[in-house]
C-alpha cells in the first residue's frame, strides 16, 4: 500500500501548470511591479509625515499639559512655615503626600503632575485646625545632618488660604520621622531651607501622615474606566490580528537594530521610572507619558517603514489610542 501511495504521490507531482496562465500571470506581475514603483515614490514622501504628525500631536498635548494654569498662587515667597500658618485667618485646606528617600529633591509642581503623590490627604478626617496647630508647635533648629537609613521621609505640600485676602499659598515640607523615636520628628521647609523639630504628643499624632499611601488606589477608576478600555483594546487587537491578518509568528522586531533600540528605550524607561519612584518617591507625569510615547512612535516608525505589509502598525495605533485615553483619564482625575 505504501509503495502504491508513493507512486501516486509521484504522479501527482508531475501535474503541470497551465503555461498560458503562467504567461498571463507573469505579464500581470510585471505590470504590478511597474505600478508599484510609481506609488512607492509617493508613499516615501508621506510615510515619515505620519510619524511627524504623531510626534507633533504628542508635543501639542504636552504643551497644553505643561501650560495648564496652576491653582496655587504664592502668598509670599519669603514667609517661612511658622509665619505662613500663623493667624486666625489662615487655614490649611489640603495636603499632598508622597514618600521619598532624598533630603534634597522635592516635587514642587502642581501635585497633579506627579505619579506617586497622594493628593488631598486628610490626616485628621475633617478637623482642619488640628494639623495647623500641630505644625505650629514646631521649634526652629539648626540644619541637621540626618542619615536617611533609620528615617522615613514624607514630602508634604501644604495648601493653605488666607480668608482675609482670599489668596492661596503652598508650603513644601519634608517631614522626617525617626524609626527609633516616635516622639521626635524633623521638618525641613524647602522654600527657605529652614529646619524645625516637633517633640512630644504632637509627634505621635503626626504619625498619621506617615501612613498615607504613596499611590492612589482608585478602585472606581480602575473598574469603570481603565478596565473597559483595556478590554476593548484587547478585543480590537484580536479583531485587527484576525482580519488584516497579523500572524502570530511575525517576529516582534523588524531587525536586530530595532530589537536593541527598542529594548534600550524600554530598559532605560524602567530604570528611570523605578529609580525615580524609589529614590524621589514621585515621578513627573511628563516622564511617565513621554517614555511610552517614544517607544510607540519608534515602533510605529520601524513597522511602517520597514515591513508595512505585516500590518503590525495597526496594533501600535491601537495601543496609542489606549494610551491617549489613559492620559485623558489621568488628567480628568479618574
Amino acid at each position: 500500500m505504501k509503495k502504491e501511495l508513493d507512486a501516486l504521490f509521484h504522479e501527482l507531482s508531475l501535474i503541470k501548470r497551465d503555461s498560458k496562465q503562467k504567461k498571463e500571470s507573469l505579464q500581470l506581475l510585471l505590470n504590478r511591479i511597474e505600478e508599484d514603483k510609481n506609488s512607492l515614490r509617493r508613499t516615501k514622501l508621506w510615510r515619515p509625515m505620519i510619524t511627524v504628525v504623531m510626534f507633533g500631536f504628542v508635543c501639542c498635548l504636552f504643551f497644553l499639559i505643561s501650560q495648564s494654569p496652576t491653582t496655587t498662587v504664592q502668598l509670599s515667597r519669603g514667609e517661612d512655615m511658622i509665619s505662613s500658618l500663623q493667624g486666625n485667618h489662615r487655614y490649611i485646606q489640603t495636603i499632598n503626600v508622597s514618600s521619598s528617600h532624598s533630603l534634597n529633591y522635592f516635587p514642587r509642581d502642581d501635585a497633579n503632575f506627579y505619579f506617586g503623590m497622594e493628593k488631598k490627604v486628610d490626616p485628621f478626617q475633617g478637623v482642619n485646625t488640628e494639623l495647623k496647630d500641630l505644625l505650629l508647635t514646631a521649634k526652629p533648629i539648626q540644619k541637621q545632618n540626618i542619615q536617611p537609613l533609620f528615617t522615613i521621609i514624607r514630602d508634604v505640600q501644604v495648601n493653605y488660604t488666607d480668608h482675609k485676602s482670599h489668596l492661596k499659598g503652598t508650603l513644601f515640607l519634608k517631614i522626617i520621622f525617626i524609626d527609633t523615636n516616635k516622639k521626635l520628628l524633623y521638618i525641613k521647609d524647602m522654600k527657605n531651607d529652614k529646619w524645625y523639630k516637633i517633640e512630644g504628643a504632637a509627634t505621635e499624632k503626626l504619625q498619621t501622615i506617615k501612613a498615607a499611601s504613596s499611590f492612589p488606589n482608585s478602585l472606581f477608576g480602575l473598574l469603570n474606566f481603565y478596565a473597559p478600555i483595556f478590554l476593548i483594546s484587547f478585543l480590537v487587537g484580536l479583531i485587527i490580528k484576525d482580519k488584516f491578518p497579523i500572524i502570530k509568528r511575525t517576529p516582534k522586531y523588524v531587525d536586530k537594530k530595532h530589537q536593541w533600540i527598542d529594548r534600550s528605550i524600554v530598559g532605560g524607561g524602567i530604570v528611570i521610572l523605578t529609580g525615580s519612584i524609589y529614590y524621589l518617591g514621585v515621578i513627573h507625569v511628563l516622564f511617565v507619558f513621554l517614555i511610552p510615547i517614544i517607544i510607540l512612535i519608534y515602533r510605529f516608525y520601524r513597522e511602517f517603514n520597514f515591513r508595512a505589509e505585516n500590518k503590525r502598525q495597526y496594533l501600535i495605533i491601537n495601543e496609542f489610542i489606549v494610551f491617549v485615553l489613559f492620559m485623558i483619564g489621568y488628567f480628568m482625575g479618574v
Partner: peptide
C-alpha cells in the same frame, strides 16, 4: 514559479487562487 505554484495549489486546492497567490509571492519577493 512552477514549484511554488504546485506547493500553493495543493494547499489551497484552487487553480485560480493558486495562480493569484503565486503572483503575490513573486510580487512580494521583488
Amino acid at each position: 514559479s512552477d514549484t511554488i505554484y504546485q506547493y500553493i495549489f495543493f494547499l489551497v486546492n484552487n487553480k485560480e487562487l493558486a495562480e493569484d497567490l503565486t503572483q503575490e509571492v513573486f510580487f512580494r519577493a521583488y
